[in-house]
Design a protein around this nucleic acid. Structure first.
Length: 260
DNA sequence: AATTCTCACAACCGCAATTCT
DNA sequence: AAGAATTGCGGTTGTGAGAAT
């Protein structure tokens, strides 16, 4: 750190020699980038960051460094580790390959909208002092594409109503997931629309890539990514990192996958 | 209390691209 | 122009802490 403070980044082999470290320049570089850099962001991956990772990975695949460029303070290594330990784990739980179309569709049409919904809900709880009433998530809905959830029966779920999900996301039966399904009586517009996401893939990716603009997911209100990272302390807690993936969800998603 | 298992994180490795001499 | 050195990236492995047995 002293060497870099005096000489700047780069010239890693020179650093290793001059600093008297029994390390290769390569090793020093890695240590600096992944651990010592003062601008590193510590702590758990937030919901917003999760959404970004899912979105950018769907677009670029395992281009970790490129993805990391859009997550200030996060390293490619950190994102890679997140993907391997969290996302791949849940793919395994769903008994499907992380690179399969099924899993990618599940991410895009179920988990990512759910992340948006929770971000919105969290945002709502911080803007109202009383018991918050989560507002509807206004996802674009030009299309009639929906995913049926007719087989879901919450009564069969051992955790219904007492979900481990701190945002209250136990799923309830709905005749049509695409139209609506509720979490603990929280009204949620889940008119998920394939065209919207596909349109993003086709038309808006460049803009998104440059500006990391998530407004497409947040409806007309939009959210400032950097701001939202600090909106709710709960979002930074350990508990929220996996709340998308409680047992009900896994059961529910398995039903969805089976019906595809 | 000891052992085994699981998970998250940091580091290592090989290869390709880039820069230097 | 060519070879050597350096840098950057993505896949993989090692490790320590906590949980489970």
């Amino acid at each position: 750190m002293n060497y870099i403070a005096n000489n700047g980044e780069g010239r890693w082999n020179s650093l290793a020699r001059c600093a008297g470290l029994n390390r290769t320049g390569k090793s020093c570089r890695l240590r600096w980038l992944n651990y010592l850099r003062p601008d590193l962001r510590r702590g758990n991956i937030t919901l917003q960051e999760q959404l970004m990772i899912l979105e950018l990975h769907s677009r670029w695949g395992n281009r970790w460094s490129k993805i990391a460029q859009h997550l200030p303070g996060r390293t490619d290594n950190e994102i890679k580790n997140y993907w391997r330990t969290r996302v791949q784990k849940h793919a395994k739980q769903l008994k499907c390959d992380v690179n399969s179309k099924q899993f990618k569709d599940t991410m895009r049409y179920l988990w990512m909208p759910r992340l948006v919904e929770r971000i919105q809900a969290a945002s709502a709880t911080t803007t109202t002092t009383a018991a918050a009433t989560p507002r509807l998530v206004s996802l674009p809905c030009e299309s009639a594409h929906t995913i049926s959830s007719s087989t879901y029966t919450p009564e069969n779920s051992s955790t219904t109503g007492t979900s481990s999900d701190s945002f209250g996301t136990s799923t309830q039966a709905s005749s049509d997931l695409g139209v609506e399904y509720n979490y603990n009586n929280i009204p949620v517009n889940h008119n998920l629309n394939l065209d919207h996401y596909q349109a993003n893939q086709g038309g808006n990716y460049q803009d998104f890539a440059v500006s990391t603009d998530l407004s497409g997911y947040y409806g007309t209100q939009g959210l400032d990514f950097q701001e939202q990272n600090n909106v709710n302390p709960c979002l930074n807690s350990e508990d929220t990192s996996d709340i998308l993936w409680n047992m009900e969800d896994i059961w529910f998603l398995q039903q969805q996958l089976n019906s595809m």
